Computed example of a mutant assay.
Amino acid sequence: MKQQNFSNHSQIVPIFHYGVLIPVLAMITCSTISLYRHYSAGLGLMLPSIALLGSVVLFLVAFLSRSFALKAQDRAIRAEENLRYFVLTGKLYDHRLSLRQVIALRFAPNEELVALAQRAVTENLSPKEIKAAIQQWKGDYYRV
């Protein structure tokens, strides 16, 4: 696996993003067109409606399964990073740090973490700004 950094840390999962989402979106498009054509021609609407409903449900299942996995992982990252910060400082993260900021701080090595966390609180840095401020990137190779 190649070294992670600010410019390449976001992850595309080809089987999910291209092998699932694109076909499901194509199904929604085709079934919508079919429903419209059946409606315009005065034909039965049951089958095209079921096809559209099924493809929308399939999209929701795909989207929510990814969303639920990311939310569970975000909770784990928050706990791990709070523990790491506690080990380094003897204190928990400042309560003013948002979850998104804590998740961005996971890329900071121990040597930069405390100062960057303080800076994130005082300057209200966005997650993108936090990641850009990291000097020695610590990759997260287990993100879903």
Results as ranks from 00 to 15, higher is better:
Val87Arg: 15
Phe63Leu: 15
Met27Tyr: 10
Val57Ser: 02
Val20Thr: 04
Pro127Gln: 13
Val114Phe: 05
Asn82Thr: 00
Leu113Asp: 01
Arg78Gln: 11
Ile33Val: 06
Ile15Met: 07
Pro109Glu: 14
Ile50Cys: 10
Ala69Tyr: 02
Gly139Val: 06
Leu92Phe: 04
Phe86Gln: 04
His17Trp: 05
Met27Leu: 13
Lys91His: 08
Ile28Gln: 05
Tyr18Asn: 01
Tyr93Leu: 05
Thr32His: 12
Cys30Tyr: 11
Asp140Glu: 14
Gly90Met: 08
Asn8Ala: 09
Ser10Tyr: 02
Ile77Phe: 03
Leu35His: 12
Tyr85Thr: 04
Trp137Val: 03
Leu125Phe: 04
Asp140Cys: 15
Asp74Arg: 06
Arg37Phe: 12
Lys128Thr: 08
Val56Pro: 00
Ala120Gly: 01
Met27Ile: 04
Leu92Thr: 13
Ala132Cys: 01
Met46Tyr: 10
Val102Ile: 15
Ile103His: 07
His17Ile: 12
Ser49Cys: 12
Leu116Gly: 03
Arg75Tyr: 05
Arg84His: 13
Lys131Ile: 09
Arg75Met: 12
Gly42Ile: 07
Ala79His: 14
Leu43Asp: 13
Gln4Pro: 03
His38Ala: 14
Val102Tyr: 04
Val61Asp: 08
Arg100Thr: 03
Gln11Glu: 05
Leu88Gly: 02
Ile134Arg: 00
Ala104Lys: 07
Tyr39Gln: 07
Ser31His: 08
Ser98Gly: 14
Phe63Thr: 14
Asn110Val: 01
Ala62Thr: 06
Ala117Gln: 03
Gln3Lys: 13
Tyr93Gly: 01
Leu88Glu: 00
Cys30Met: 11
Cys30Lys: 04
Ala132Trp: 09
Tyr36His: 07
Thr122Val: 12
Ser31Trp: 08
Phe86Lys: 01
Ser49Trp: 08
Ala62Gly: 10
Tyr36Val: 14
Ala51Lys: 10
Arg37Pro: 13
Ala120Lys: 00
Glu81His: 05
Lys138Gly: 06
